[in-house]
Every structure is written in C-alpha cells, then in structure tokens.
Write a protein that binds this DNA or RNA. Structure first.
Lengths: 302, 302
DNA sequence: AGATGCTGTTTGATATATAGCTACAATGAG
DNA sequence: CTCATTGTAGCTATATATCAAACAGCATCT
C-alpha cells in the first residue's frame, strides 16, 4: 500500500514542476519569467528539493546548467509524475461531462437481441457522443486482446475471471411450454413429472440431462441447442418444454404463445455482469456506461 | 511535454496523500491522528482538493464516508502517483549508494571471454553487493523477454535496436597472420595481394568474401567460422590470415604468436555498445554499471 | 423517544513560512 | 582585464496555515 509519510511542509509538487521546467529551459531566470516570480524563488525551491532528496540534481555554474546523472533519472520520473497528475485531473473532467469517444462492447447473442438492444438504444440516445461498436457472440473471448472496453456475461453462479465484474441485474428462469403442448400431453404437477416429457437441453449447461429445478431433476429430450431463441421457437411449435431465462421468453409469455409452468419450483437466478479489462485505470466513459446500465435496469424493473 | 501550470498555492501533494489515507481508514479523525494533526486540517485539505478539482470525491455523512465514483477513480490514480513519487525518491537513494541487487547480463562470446571478463572481475570486486548473472552467447536475443538488465553488442556501424545503447569504447581491427605463415608464403605488400592467400571468413560478416580494408578487398579461403578465437587458433597454426578485433588478438600479438600486417590500410573500428531495455525508467544499478564500464575502459585505455 | 457519544465542519487567534527585494559573488565573453 | 549576466543569501512584510474549541448532524442505546 501507499505508505508515504508527510515529510516537510514544503510544496514538493511545485518544486518538481519547477525542476522539470528548469531542466527544459536551462535557466533560472527564464523559469522565473514563465511563472511570474523571482529567480530567487526558483533557486530556493530547487535547493530545497535537493536538500530534501539529499542529492544534487543540477550542477550550476553561473554560466551553465547541467543535469547530474541523478538529476537525469529524477527528471524522467518527475515528468512522468506530472503527466499522471494531469491525467488524474482530466479523468475528473471527463467523468463530469457526458461520456464520449469509442466504446467497443461484447454482448452475448440472445441478450443482445432482446433486452440489451433496447438498453443500448436508450444509451445511444442519451449519449450521442459515444460511438458504439457492438459485437454479438457467445464465444469466450479475450477482451484485452480484442480491444474490447466492455463485455457482458450472464451466469447463474459467481465465476472467476481476470476482469472486473459488476453485477447489473438479475433475471429469473421460466419453465416454458406452449398451451397446445400441455393440453395434448400428460399433466405436469411436479418437477419429477418432466421425465415423461420432451425436455430441451441448452448446450452450455454445466450438467447434462439435469435441470436446476429444486434439487435438480433428470430430463431427456430430442433437442440440444446453443441458442435459447431457437429453443423458444421449438417450444412455440408445441414440440416440447424448455427452461428459458426471463429475457428470452418475456415477450412470448405476454403474448400467451407459451406459458410458465412449475412456478413454485426452486429455480436459480441468472445474474448479468458487466466485465471490463483490469487495466490499471478504467476510462471514465466505461464507468459512466456501467452506471447507466445499472440505473436503466433498476428503473425498468426487469 | 509536461505543460502543467502552477494553479493554486495549495499543497496538492499533501492533499492527495491525505485523501488516499482517508479513503483507506475512512475516518477524518483517524487520519488526523496518524499525521499528528487536527481533524480540521484534514477536512480543509480535502475540501480544497475537491474545490480545485471541481468534483466531490468522498461523500460524507457524519457517520459514514463513501467514495463517489469519481473519487474511486481518482483514488486509483492518486495511489499510483504517490507510488511513483516514492519510486523517484528511492531511485535517488539507490543512485547514491553502491549498486546492489541482481544484474542479469548478456555478453557476446569472445568479448566475454577476453576483455569483459577482466572488466567484470573488477566490477564484482568494486561492488560486492551486486549479484551478477552472466549469459555468454552470440544469438540475437530479446533482452526484455529473457529478463536481461543489460546486454552488449559490438558493431562496426550504428545499428537499429529497440534498446537504448550507450557506446562504451572502440576497438580496432588487425589483419593477423603467424610469422611462419608469412615466411612461407608470397609477400603481402598491399591489400590486393590478399587474394592469393588463405583468408578466413567470419560467419556474421555482412558481405561475404569481402574484407573491409580500404574500399573493400575480395578474398577467398578455406575456413568460415562464427567464432574469432577459433579463427585465431587457425592463424596461430600457420594456416592462413584473418581479420580480428583487437580484443581477440591482443594477447597473441604481444606474445608474438601472430603479427599484424597491413597496418596502414584503412580499417573500420568496432564500437562496443551497452544496451538496456527501453523500459520507462532505468534502474539505478544499471546506470551505475554503465558508468563503471565507461570509466573502466577509459582508464585502461584499451 | 430522548439522551449520549461519536462524527465532520466552522470559526477565530496565533504562529509559521513564504515571496520579493536588494545586494553579492562567481563566471564567461569580448 | 572588464563587464554583463547569472545564481545565491539575507532580510522584512505579508500571507497563509495551524490548532483549539465550539458547533452541528447522525446512529445507537436505554
């Protein structure tokens, strides 16, 4: 951790600034002019800095200034520090303005087609100065390598990742079937009854042939697919039963094309995480975007 | 370049330090205790910092302190800045002490066996606290990848490199043959006569069959080897003629095992460069080592 | 609910450090 | 050798920072 102790009451920052300037223009008098102060000021400030550091930074003869080796190394570091300070300031500025610039985002396929599409539409309207580049896809990709600023992941359990993740919202699951299917097949009263039905499997599920209802129920079925919208279509066509996340089936439920059964069974929830590369410093625009997301999902109450 | 302008006369550094501490312990009172000052100090300093930045960094209720999002981002940057400041200070310290720590060095084979071996012997004696790890080899290696702090390269012309290079010294070349060889073969009066002799070729030469004497002379011979000490051995055995850098043939010349011919021909010089990775900041020990090298070669006048 | 024990902030008196002036010393150019 | 110019040192007025104590807001405990 940072363990610096306040040393002197001197204004080290200003001293460093002056030192950098001095190294640049190589004249006490010129530095004094630039800063609208007297040359004795500069002289004192530099001397004080040297005294505090315990090393001579710049060798002065009345006619020539020359950096010592130590001073040379210190100069580089000093410049870097001043730059970092400036960056910190501009970070604050940017955080207070509307975000702008490019934002490259990775979004899971189905979520991108459904809820996140609406969300990003609002986002673009709210922040017209942001140029979005959206990549839809379910592959595991390396955000850093591919140059993504932001990515999303839906998961029913916490997961390891080399990225920083913020939970955005939670989705529920629904066991869905079409009314026609239910009418023409044996009645389902408990999760165990599912074993006699055509239960679709999602390819990316952790455990095959097992639905996470209550303590897990064994299922079998004639379809295994890696896209829940495809699965939804099969369900709408009265072919069988599927477990779908809320965002995939919400519309179909509202239209009555499918119905949610086994509503009282225990089901996991699906958390949506926003991920961003663990760069040393997160750009203001990314943080602002995540804020927007969280507010958006909270407001829409989905 | 660094273009920060002195803004207020406030001591920003101290304010930042206090802010970081405050974010850590989350209590104005505790920070005040740690710094042996009053809590009003801390309060003012933080307020001033916020005023200067134009943003609230930490939200305070009497019972709870909570970083704002802006504050969160600023905190990270502030910590980094303080660390950098500490690094700059320790750089100064280290530069004034005898160098210490590990130093991993890459050295060309023959140079390492000859001059640099002597140099490093002296270096180790002068700086017993440095742990040297020396790799002898002529391969083109990536200093950064292999974790080298320092490397050497001898070259007769300036070269591109992604590393920072400091010229350490210069070596001359000698056209060498054994006295016996010269006595038993046609006399050599000018560089052109070499075409009738067995001239050895160094594998890494830029242009094959061409020695860089005067404007370049064509040669032929029965040996091509990538190690000049091997070549020297062949010369000592009266087998032919070779162009050798000073450090390779100095001893043999002194012993009279070989002689230097064509002394008035134009020959290139061979500059020895110390290379170090273009890291943002060069460790003090590396700079000190290079200083030692330059002094050593200047003193020994080689 | 009300009192109490913490917080962080504000205020005003005192002490400290700072800036700028002037004079001085050192150096390199003509 | 002289002179102009540069960086340094000493001094005083001013400005600034510091601390103590009173103030105000919140949470907890009885």
């Amino acid at each position: 951790m940072v363990e610096t102790i306040i040393k002197e009451s001197m204004n080290k920052l200003r001293a460093i600034e002056m030192f950098v300037k001095l190294a640049e223009v190589r004249s006490f008098t010129r530095v004094a002019e630039q800063y609208n102060t007297s040359k004795s000021m500069i002289s004192k400030e530099i001397s004080r800095l040297e005294a505090e550091l315990g090393a001579r930074l710049i060798h002065r003869t009345t006619r020539n200034l020359q950096l010592t080796h130590v001073g040379e190394g210190y100069l580089q570091r000093a410049k870097d520090i001043l730059n970092k300070l400036e960056d910190a300031d501009t970070f604050i500025q940017e955080s207070q303005q509307a975000p702008k610039g490019k934002l490259k985002v990775n979004v899971p396929m189905v979520l991108g087609i459904t809820d996140l599409a609406a969300m990003f539409a609002d986002f673009m309207q709210a922040y017209p100065d942001v140029d979005l580049e959206i990549h839809l896809g379910d592959e595991d990709i390396d955000l850093v390598e591919q140059g993504f600023d932001l990515g999303f992941r839906a998961s029913s359990r916490p997961f390891d990742s080399s990225y920083i993740g913020k939970e955005i919202t939670q989705f529920s699951y629904h066991v869905c079937a079409s009314p026609q299917y239910l009418a023409s097949h044996p009645v389902i009263e408990s999760a165990q009854d599912l074993i006699h039905h055509n239960c679709f499997e999602y390819s990316y599920s952790k455990r095959k042939n097992l639905w996470p209802l209550d303590k897990g129920v064994r299922i079998k079925g004639s379809l295994k697919v890696n896209n829940v919208l495809f699965m939804l279509q099969a369900i709408k066509s009265h072919l069988g039963i599927g477990v779908l996340p809320e965002f995939a089936c919400r519309e179909a439920l509202e239209k009555g094309e499918v119905v949610s059964i086994l509503q009282h069974a225990d089901k996991p929830t699906l958390a949506l995480y926003a991920l961003y590369p663990a760069r040393q410093f997160v750009p203001a625009a990314v943080l602002q975007c995540i804020d927007f997301l969280q507010v958006w999902f909270k407001r829409d109450g989905r």
